[in-house]
Design a protein around this nucleic acid. Structure first.
Lengths: 242, 242
DNA sequence: TTTGTACTCTTGTCCATACAAACTATTTAT
DNA sequence: ATAAATAGTTTGTATGGACAAGAGTACAAA
């Protein structure tokens, strides 16, 4: 990677360094644990003082993006991601906004016949055809969450849509369906075999399970969604006010 | 207020300054918006360099506790309360309302000395005496959740109170302390040995961990609480509105 | 009374320097 | 072969200094 800083820029040096470091952080090598260049070398390369560099590094360390140890060096922190439960819109959008490259490992869409449970949740006849979406997602260093979603047939999804797009956007713009309420159950459980394989953990290890029923503003259910998160990489945050 | 720093202490100067600032932050005058002493004066008073002082100040600024403006000075950040409301998570109350006989298996109260982490959470000096409450609770057929609570010394708890009473009721009626905001982190993990024993599960089985910081209406922290729930017996429910 | 200028105050940016602390690697002694 | 000592590496702590940028205030001029 090319290290460069514009000494004539109006942007403060420490801000430019911060951005450079953020770019480095998402580079594959560093994301996998390789040490960043040491302070003295990097400062020299950039033509700035060590303290200016440290100012930027401290900020990223404080944000949890870098880990520093004297005598060893500086590394990118291994990711565990958290999300605010009450925040809307979607998780993926939030990750993108945070500059965390959240990617799809696998997407599988199918039309399936609603079983008893799904039929009851959607108040439809068992055997009705609906769209089922399975997505495996995470960061470059590995999968983090498996989503399994079922959509109410009322929406009109065919299964031929582009499911790499943000889901809520597609529902709103293409199907005039607005997600407004999410009712969720969060629990912990031991990973069953199929989920363990997908998330690259051992069967029986703890996972966080999130079951969501999403409703439109008229409180009609539109989506039933189960998420399985690797427990070591995921924490929910929530603020509750009385 | 007396500004003092122990230049012979093993604790780094910037850490002592940080603690001093945290103490200042909770002082009434500053909490109401009065400017802190300027950098140059404060550094002189403390006998440290301006950069050492700034290092500590930056940390608190980054934590959202201080607001700094060039040409004006440094003030304690004013907290605005989130207007979004969700259900209040008084678990015991909810169980009682549902007619589910939720009982205490074990209660243990002690006065303990705040360690580094607790001290930082409460913005008090390490070694300050506080009340720690440990409760094992569940249904008749077995324990379900282990609570570990620490209370801010400002409340005035002695450890001699009746902890079989509902906690919030006691805080409000006897100590004029009103829990208003709860900030929570929910995650899954494998049960460590001590928790597994308490919950009557095997070490390594999944548990749901809930870390709560409870604040009064003035956004002052009053309680730090860790709950470990048996994953097989607990699901967290929440409604989210856009 | 309004506007412009100068000054003061305070934080922001940046630098160079020195030594401490913790860790790893190498060399030397047993 | 192993332990101890030494050297090297890197971040942590701390200092003193200089100048810039932005905000507020005081005062003079119109």
């Amino acid at each position: 990677m090319e290290f460069s800083i514009d000494h004539n820029s109006a942007l403060p040096l420490h801000a430019q360094v911060e951005q450079l470091l953020r770019n480095m952080i998402v580079e594959e090598d560093y994301a996998e644990g390789k040490l960043l260049p040491n302070e003295i070398d990097l400062a020299k390369k950039l033509g700035i003082s060590r303290n200016t560099l440290r100012q930027a590094m401290h900020k990223l360390m404080f944000e949890g993006l870098l880990v520093r140890e004297k005598g060893i060096g500086t590394r990118v922190a291994s990711r565990s991601v958290n999300t605010r439960l009450t925040d809307w819109p979607s998780f993926t959008q939030e990750m993108n906004e945070k500059g965390i490259p959240f990617i799809n490992f696998d997407i599988h869409v199918a039309r399936v016949y609603a079983d008893e449970m799904i039929a009851q949740i959607f108040s439809i006849k068992p055997g009705t055809q609906i769209v089922k979406l399975e997505r495996l997602r995470g960061l470059k260093d590995g999968p983090m969450v498996q989503f399994i979603s079922y959509f109410h047939p009322r929406i009109g999804l065919t299964g031929q849509e582009d499911y790499t797009r943000p889901l809520n956007e597609m529902l709103e713009h293409d199907f005039a369906t607005i997600p407004a309420i999410s009712r969720e159950e969060i629990s912990a459980q031991a990973a069953p075999k199929d989920i363990a394989v997908r998330l690259e953990i051992k069967k029986g290890e703890p996972i966080l399970k999130r079951v969501r029923k999403v409703y439109d503003p008229g409180e009609r259910i539109i989506e039933y969604n189960i998420c399985y998160y690797r427990a070591d990489k995921f924490t929910y945050l929530i603020d509750i006010h009385r």
